[in-house]
């Protein structure tokens, strides 16, 4: 009886899962296609497209660039976000509301507009397109998130321990580096990995602000022009796989903190 009543819910969830995973399944399955087309029929498992991926100099260079831009921009965003959160936490909410609004504002503006703004501004002062500029763009989009993650994890508990450290003679800088940062490392890592994932996947900013040296999503985009190919599936599966690993890592970091 109870099972019967649950039936619509089970059917709905199954359908929803199918809808959400259909494109991902097609992407991943046909990256192993033993044939030239990433569509049915499936002709058997082969790793040849992953070999092709590794042999593609341009793609490998783009991957290196993606990692470089991702790591540096995420480090910068996490550092700026953490410092701002550290400065704002435990101050009366009304006094920091404006600064908070200011820091969170980029979240409501399209990546395209942020990219164009940077493009035109750098153009005006004579700075050319480069990976550095892409990195700056990625810090702009990630800073609000990094700030929000750190801000949400800075509670009364940290304040008390910090005060204790200061009572024991630590100065501000010592308390920050020796007490606050070690206590907050799960949040800091989570913030870093979320930022890295978003930078790793980001297209429009990288597309508009980079020139010859560019990132993975941009190279995948340019490969798209020559149509569907299992090699594209392999590249997509790889990029997606890295994102998933990082997201699960974040889930573990923040999830463990919640339960402890």
């Amino acid at each position: 009886m109870r099972g019967l009543r649950q039936l619509p819910a089970i059917l709905y969830m199954t359908a929803a899962f199918a809808f959400i995973f259909l494109p991902v399944a097609m992407l991943v399955i046909y990256s192993f296609q033993n044939g030239p087309l990433p569509v049915p029929p499936f002709k058997g498992v082969s790793l040849r497209w992953y070999d092709a991926l590794l042999a593609d100099r341009k793609l490998m260079a783009a991957m290196g660039n993606s990692v470089l831009v991702g790591v540096l921009s995420s480090l910068a965003a996490t550092m700026l976000g953490f410092l701002a959160a550290y400065a704002m936490a435990r101050r009366p909410p009304r006094r920091v509301a404006l600064a908070q609004f200011f820091l969170m504002a980029p979240i409501s503006v399209s990546y395209l507009i942020i990219a164009l703004g940077l493009l035109f501004t750098f153009n005006l002062v004579g700075v050319g397109k480069s990976l550095l500029v892409v990195g700056i763009g990625h810090v702009v989009i990630n800073l609000p998130l990094c700030f929000a993650i750190c801000y949400s994890q800075l509670g009364e508990h940290q304040a008390n321990v910090e005060r204790a450290a200061q009572d024991l003679g630590a100065n501000d800088l010592q308390a920050l580096i020796l007490v606050t940062v070690p206590m907050l490392w799960p949040a800091l890592l989570a913030s870093f990995f979320i930022a890295f994932t978003l930078s790793w996947d980001e297209f429009v900013i990288a597309f508009l602000l980079s020139k010859y040296d560019t990132t993975m999503p941009v190279v995948i985009w340019s490969m798209l022009r020559s149509g569907l190919s299992p090699k594209l599936n392999a590249a997509g599966t790889f990029v997606f796989g890295i994102s998933i690993l990082l997201v699960l890592l974040v889930e573990l970091l923040l999830g463990r903190k919640r339960t402890s």
């Binding site: 494109p23 991902v24 994932t197 996947d201 297209f203 997606f240 994102s243």
Partner: peptide, 9 residues
């Protein structure tokens, strides 16, 4: 989970 793929992919 697929939320974390890039728009392009």
């Amino acid at each position: 989970l697929p939320f974390w793929t890039s728009y392009v992919i």
